[in-house]
């Protein structure tokens, strides 16, 4: 079988699985049905059953991977949509997001160093609080593994969404902006989706925090790695 044929099959397969899980997630709104979670698991099971090596699958997967770059560029669009709110809230939101980004990179890195986690895993978990495509390119640039980064991002997203009601209560974070920034900074798109359910405003603030945090972490992460690793 030539590689073009394999490539087309894996692209069509990936897109089909994605669309199916996307439809399922629209119907059953749960973290488990998130396409990145469910879709990846379905493809992994498929590869294991048919004994297909990951490298073979990536002949086509690489083509989809190529679109990660423009996908990150497209994230300027949600930020642009919220430009009025952004202008109005620039200091509190930027301040909260920046401090959050520093805490996220630093705490993940330091605890992992203390507990003796291997370097390549540390590099992969450092950008866990930002949206997957950005976290993947950050991980790639500091020497981590993109697929591990994706897993840690999903854990941070689902974990944060589940923990958020307790955290907000425990630390008395009542302010809608504080909650929005907390969700977007810690749990990116998954947190934003949940914030959106609380209120449109909280979701919009979370969207801003998510994109700003992605920019902040992409600057902070390489610097911290340079300083501490």
């Amino acid at each position: 079988m030539n590689s073009l044929f394999i490539g087309i099959i894996s692209i069509v397969g990936t897109v089909t699985v994605y669309l199916l899980t996307w439809k399922l997630h629209k119907r059953i709104d749960s973290p488990i049905t998130l396409p990145v979670f469910m879709g990846s698991i379905i493809i992994i099971i498929g590869l294991v059953i048919f004994d297909i090596p990951y490298d073979t699958y990536m002949i086509g997967g690489e083509w989809i991977n190529q679109l990660l770059g423009p996908a990150v560029v497209a994230l300027a669009y949600p930020l642009y949509q919220q430009r009025r709110l952004l202008k109005q809230l620039i200091y509190p939101v930027l301040g909260g997001t920046l401090v959050g980004a520093i805490v996220g990179v630093f705490s993940g890195m330091i605890i992992a160093i203390w507990t003796g986690v291997e370097d390549y895993i540390i590099y992969s978990l450092i950008p866990k609080s930002v949206t997957t495509p950005v976290s993947m390119v950050i991980t790639d640039s500091i020497g981590g593994v993109m697929s591990l980064a994706a897993v840690f991002v999903v854990i941070a997203g689902i974990g944060g969404a589940i923990m958020s009601p307790f955290i907000f209560k425990l630390f008395n974070i009542k302010h809608v902006y504080g909650r929005g920034v907390g969700m977007g900074s810690a749990s990116h798109a998954i947190g934003t989706a949940q914030a959106m359910e609380s209120s449109q405003l909280e979701g919009s603030v979370s969207t801003i925090a998510m994109v700003l945090s992605a920019i902040a972490v992409s600057i902070i992460a390489p610097m911290m790695v340079f300083l501490f690793m």
Partner: peptide, 29 residues
């Protein structure tokens, strides 16, 4: 192997980000 520990680190760090960024924003407001 170390999986559970790493998941714990990710969750702990995520909670810290949520608390700090939320509180700082609230305070700045």
């Amino acid at each position: 192997g170390k999986g559970l520990l790493i998941v714990f680190i990710v969750l702990l760090s995520t909670a810290m980000v949520m608390v700090v960024s939320g509180l700082v924003t609230q305070w700045l407001m």
